[in-house]
């Protein structure tokens, strides 16, 4: 098989980018999309040219590294999978394929198809955790959790943090990413004590990072490699409203949880 690739090339964040056309020849239909790019790169390196930079690691759809917009859709034409799980037999021979990076102000470009997604980490750092110390945990069966609750929490927790939801959203909103984490922890009794502050802190971080806001178009759900449901965005909104109500009844200045360490 052979393909014509229009790939976004950009040397660095400050440089101007442009599309460059490459021909991928002798592609076997059993090759994965990333292996096809590998072979293009091997050709470039052998000629002494810089290969196309793109991100990948586990190549089995779980690490969330790969991040290509293929013909206008993050992770390409098939639903419920990452770029690394896409195989060339999915494309007709001779197809023209356009490859772009995730595009969002909060994801500044590093090189070619590689962007900086640390904004997502900073959102988690703002509150996407349960602050328990190592060693003090009670037995795992002390708090019973119904199967349905555990399964729903797991549905949300399946997020791999790839950022496709941001890439697909017209407004570059991470609502699905945040909703998944907030819902995961809100469905578990262990996550409840901190739920009020968590949702507020995480949404404040979203604003700080320069993401857009959710327009409920549900395009995120359609490209999510783990098929995370937009119902978790509704739960995020509910948690946020709830936090507003609860907060108004809290004492004005709660004691800082880290008073001792500062």
């Amino acid at each position: 098989m052979k393909f014509t690739l229009n790939i976004w090339r950009q040397k660095g964040p400050e440089e101007r980018g442009r599309f460059v056309t490459y021909e991928a020849r002798d592609v076997s239909s059993d090759m994965s999309f990333l292996e096809m790019l590998d072979s293009v790169n091997q050709g470039l390196i052998a000629k002494g040219e810089e290969p196309v930079a793109f991100e990948q690691d586990c190549r089995e759809g779980i690490c969330g590294s790969c991040s290509l917009v293929i013909n206008g859709i993050p992770h390409g034409p098939d639903r419920g999978m990452t770029t690394c799980q896409l195989y060339m037999r999915r494309f007709p021979d001779g197809a023209v394929i356009t490859i772009e990076p995730w595009r969002a102000r909060a994801f500044p470009l590093i090189k070619d198809l590689v962007v900086d997604r640390r904004a997502l980490d900073r959102i988690i750092q703002a509150g996407g955790y349960i602050s328990v110390h190592t060693g003090g945990a009670v037995d795992g069966n002390v708090l019973l959790i119904s199967k349905e609750q555990a399964e729903t929490a797991m549905d949300a927790a399946a997020c791999i943090g790839c950022g496709a939801c941001v890439a697909a959203c017209k407004n570059a909103s991470p609502a699905l990413f945040v909703g998944a984490k907030v819902s995961h922890l809100a469905f578990l009794p262990q996550g409840r004590p901190e739920r009020t502050n968590r949702v507020k802190a995480m949404l404040e971080a979203v604003d700080r990072e320069g993401f857009g806001s959710c327009g409920n178009q549900n395009e995120c759900e359609a490209v999510c490699p783990k098929r995370i449901s937009v119902r978790f965005i509704a739960i995020l909104n509910r948690e946020y409203l709830r936090a507003g109500v609860v907060e108004s009844s809290l004492p004005a200045e709660p004691e800082s949880p880290h008073a001792e360490s500062t």
């Binding site: 955790y129 349960i130 328990v132 190592t134 060693g135 003090g136 945990a137 009670v138 037995d139 795992g140 069966n141 708090l143 019973l144 959790i145 119904s146 199967k147 609750q149 555990a150 399964e151 929490a153 797991m154 927790a157 995961h184 922890l185 578990l188 262990q190 996550g191």
Partner: peptide, 22 residues
């Protein structure tokens, strides 16, 4: 055994029985 307790406390959604146990 401590690992499981620690992970549960951190919000790891382990599979559960219908009765709510791990």
């Amino acid at each position: 055994t401590q690992i499981i307790d620690q992970c549960v406390a951190l919000g790891v959604p382990f599979a559960r029985e219908y009765g709510g146990q791990l």
